Amino acid sequence: MLSKGLLRVLIGITNVLFFIAGGTALGVGVWFSMDKLFVSDLIGTGLFSAASYLFIFCGAFIILLSFLGCAASVFESKKLLILYLFLVILILIVFLSAAIVAAVFQGELTSSLQERMQTTLKQGYGNNIYGSEENRKITESWNFAQKTLRCCGVDDSGYGIYRETQWYRDAVSQAIDLSQVNFVPESCCVYLEHRQRYQNVDLCQRNPYGPPTNPDPNSSKNDNMYYDGCLSAAQHYGEDNAGVILAIGFGFSFVLIAGIVLSILLIRKMSNLSFDPVSTKVT
């Protein structure tokens, strides 16, 4: 049986891990809120922004919880330890519930995301960007996403969606020679990181021998533009990092369960519960 002193040490170690996990979540939330909020403009919803702020809140909460656990252990306060146990169980329930909901509704979330991305691109991209702050942000966010994720449009080989945008309609209405109209924006073109420039913008945007001018994506291939849609590019990015995400999730769940078990054992020790068998011998 573990001694009370050993249990206090183990709870201390567990709370150090809580502190690290909370700091990580807080850092990820701040990073997302400062650098990745362009995703909210792409999907036309504030859910991503809300998720970023939720990361910040949860990270700060877990950090405070680690201090509460350490205080309960150091001062051997049964009331603080019970409160700590309740909050850890609550976090575990929320964490598992979120994971289950994400798994169950994954298909619906992907479909909804696809529709939202198509809507923002068709309605907002290049549409009065000097008069509409919202459309300017949408346009900048799409350009940033396509350049960063190396994708074009929403669906794979879905560059044709740009013909449904105000950006393309304005280009056609203002063009003297339609052969000079761009079919895709510059951000859809292959970007050479080592040279800090696009590979061949003219052939990318107006290639006369294949996409994007040719509506049949199977007829030939334009090596100067991206064919992956931004939806699949984002999914591939997530799949590439799925192992790390699962490892972090599993590790965090294990730490939460360890915190619950150790807290229960220490509460029992502090309560001086005795489970000595009752004698049934008749005198």
Rank of each mutant, 00 (worst) to 15 (best):
M1W: 04
L2C: 12
S3F: 08
K4I: 09
G5E: 15
L6I: 14
V9Q: 11
I11Y: 05
I13H: 07
T14H: 04
T14P: 01
V16S: 02
F18R: 01
F18N: 07
F18H: 04
I20F: 08
I20G: 03
A21C: 07
G23F: 07
A25I: 14
G27P: 06
V30C: 07
F32G: 08
S33F: 08
F38H: 01
G44Q: 10
G46K: 03
A51F: 15
L54S: 13
F61M: 15
L64F: 12
L65K: 04
F67P: 00
S73D: 05
F75H: 13
S77I: 09
V88K: 02
I91E: 05
V94Q: 00
A98N: 10
A98V: 15
I100F: 14
I100H: 01
I100R: 02
V104Y: 12
F105R: 08
Q106R: 08
G107P: 15
G107D: 15
S111P: 00
S111V: 15
Q114H: 14
Q114S: 13
E115L: 11
E115H: 12
R116Q: 15
T120Y: 10
L121Y: 06
L121M: 13
L121I: 09
K122G: 00
G126F: 05
G126W: 05
G131Q: 11
S132K: 08
E133D: 10
N135E: 06
N135F: 05
K137V: 02
S141G: 03
N143A: 02
F144P: 00
C151P: 00
V154S: 06
S157K: 14
G160C: 06
E164W: 00
D170S: 02
Q174F: 00
A175F: 11
D177Q: 04
S179P: 03
P185C: 14
S187D: 10
E193R: 06
N200T: 09
L203A: 05
R206Q: 12
N207A: 06
P208T: 13
P208N: 04
G210M: 10
P215Y: 09
D216N: 14
G229C: 14
S232A: 10
A234C: 03
Q235S: 02
G238S: 07
G243Q: 07
V244M: 08
V244F: 05
I245N: 02
A247M: 15
I248N: 02
G249L: 08
F250D: 00
I257V: 14
I257L: 14
V261R: 00
V261D: 01
I264C: 12
L265P: 02
R268P: 11
R268W: 10
M270G: 10
L273K: 06
L273V: 15
V278T: 04
K281N: 02
K281W: 09
